[in-house]
Structure formats: structure tokens, C-alpha cells
Simulated assay, not measured.
Amino acid sequence: MDIKSLKYFLAVVQEGNISRAARKLCIAQPPLSRQIRLLEEELGTTLFIRGKKEIQLTQEGRFLKQQAGEILELLEKTQEQIGKFGSGVHGLVSIAAAESFGIGLLSDMVEEFHGLYPDVRFQIWCGNSDEVRDKLERGLADVGIVRAPVYMEQCEQIFLRSEPWVAAMSREHPLAQEQGEGITLKKLGGETLMLPVRDQLQEEINHWFNELAQEREILCYYNSSASMLPLVEKGMGIAICPGSARYFAAGEGIVYKTITEPRKESRLYMVRQRYRILSRAAGAFWEYASGQEKGGGQG
């Protein structure tokens, strides 16, 4: 199995038909069909279910599609970055960021860094912190931005900033009518809540209520602020989320109140694989973030 056979395989997948794929690749159909058969023989499995006009992927074919896409993406990224060594700070920085972080601090960092190094481009992927770790471990991201607690033994980390935990509620909720921008943790104890799906964050939040010996009713667990906030706006519950979640819905229907007594903080870190060599562009971005840490972060 080589790069050419993977590219041929993906072309057939994308076109759904060997004849169309051959035209796209500017080769004859018989050699392409032969390459696909050889790939199946080498792997010892059937990748396609062949119909009269269209072909469909088998389970093994779907798995190879996923893996081949990532292999070719990593190859392209590696070739581009190697070509930039010794030629100044150019190229691509691939960042995997915790979702609620992406619109806030990250945009400020990218803007400032791009002002320093205008020839650098960015690839930004957003997900939860566990998905960010997976991207790093598979070499599909240069650096990651995650929310504590951070359990990454093979990673270096840079503290970026802390932000308050907030309670997001419908503007019609009685607690939203109260004066002030804060809300005590005790007042949230009797409410229907929505919590982050990540286990470590659930444990942290549940520990707050355990310290106050308060029961809590959980409506749902969410991995995306954007998906949870419509439920909040409908008055179905109060979401406990990082302060930067307000970037996803700043409309009239939702009120954010900072959790107080005691105030709760969420800490954000940039991480990288400890023994992975960064490209010149990614290394410059890491050094830039290190300078932000020494200078006291972004807030």
C-alpha cells in the first residue's frame, strides 16, 4: 500500500464510480480498476460493493477512507513544512482548540501573531479537550488549547489565562431578573442544570455542590455550547459553562451570571507533544504563547 494507491482509492470514493474517477485522475479505467483490485488483495479484504452504476463502501472501505484521508493530510502538511525549514517563518500552524475557546482568546492570539509573521497560515479545528488530545497524539495538530484539568503526561503545557465559570439562563428565568452580574452557587442548587459532557469537568462541578451538601437535577450533558444554548433560551434549564461561551450567543434571550460565593475559575492551557519536532512556523507560535505566559497571559 503506497501513497498513489491511497489517492486512487479516495478518488473512487469521492466520485462513486470508477469511470468518473479515472477521468478525474486522467488515466484509463482498466489500470485504475487493477490498482483497486491489487489494494484489496494486499489488504485481504473487499473495499467496495460494486453496482451497475455506483459503488458503495464496505465497513473496511469506510475505515480505510478515514485513515487514508488522515495519512494524506499529514503527508501534505509534512512536505509543506519541510520545504519551509531554513527559509524564515512561513508555512502552516495547525491548532486544535477547545470549542468554547475558539472565538475568544484564540482569535486575539492569531491576529497578533499574524501581524508579527504575515506569511504564516493557520488550520484551526475545534472540539472538546479529549478530541484535542487525540489530534495531538495522531500528529494532526501542532499544538492544542485545552481546558483544565489537563492529564497529558507526554505533553508540555503553557498557561494562557483563567476565566470565570458562568450560569447561562433564559432572560425569563426568575434568577435572571435579580440585580447584579453574579449568582451564588447555592442559588443554583435547586435548579435544573446542564453540565459539560467531559468527565473531569463533571467531577469538578459536582464537587462544588457536594461541598455545599446540595442536591442537583441534571437535564443533559453537552459537548457543544452552540447546541446547548437554544435549550437554555427556551427555559429548559441553566447551563454551567465557561465565560467564553457567551461568544456563541450574545442575543437578548440569554443572560450570563458569573458564579460567586465561591467564585469558580476555569484555566486554559496550550499544549504540545513533548518529543515532537515542530515546524518553524509552529515553533514560533509556541514561543509566542510562551511569551504571553511570562507576560501574565491575556487576562
Rank of each mutant, 00 (worst) to 15 (best):
A22H: 13
Q200F: 04
L231I: 01
A68L: 08
I71P: 00
G251V: 03
S225P: 05
Y221Q: 10
E111A: 14
G283M: 04
E153F: 04
S224I: 10
C26E: 14
P164M: 01
Q14F: 07
R37A: 14
V132K: 05
L229W: 11
D142T: 02
E203I: 15
T46L: 07
Q177C: 09
L74I: 14
T192N: 02
G83I: 03
L64I: 04
Y256Q: 02
R20T: 11
K84H: 15
Y275Q: 10
D108R: 15
E73D: 11
G182A: 03
E163A: 00
F48M: 03
Y275L: 10
R147P: 00
S279W: 02
T258V: 14
I158S: 06
I124R: 08
V232Y: 02
P230V: 14
E217L: 15
T184N: 09
V197H: 08
I145P: 00
R216I: 15
V255M: 06
W125S: 12
E156F: 10
D130M: 06
Q35S: 13
T46E: 14
Q292R: 06
E60Y: 02
L32F: 05
K7L: 10
A11V: 11
A168T: 11
R133H: 09
L75K: 07
E178A: 05
S290F: 00
R23V: 14
E163C: 02
S290Y: 00
Q14D: 14
E73W: 07
E73H: 13
S225C: 09
K53T: 08
R62S: 00
F85T: 11
F248A: 03
I240G: 13
G235R: 04
H114W: 15
Q123N: 08
I18Q: 11
V232G: 08
S290Q: 12
V89I: 15
Y222G: 02
A289I: 00
Q67T: 05
L57E: 04
S129L: 02
V12W: 08
E111C: 09
Q214F: 11
I277V: 07
I82F: 03
S170I: 06
L105Y: 12
P242H: 05
A98G: 08
S244I: 00
L32N: 07
R161T: 06
K77D: 11
Y269S: 01
E131T: 07
M236V: 10
C26F: 09
G243V: 00
L212M: 12
E112H: 15
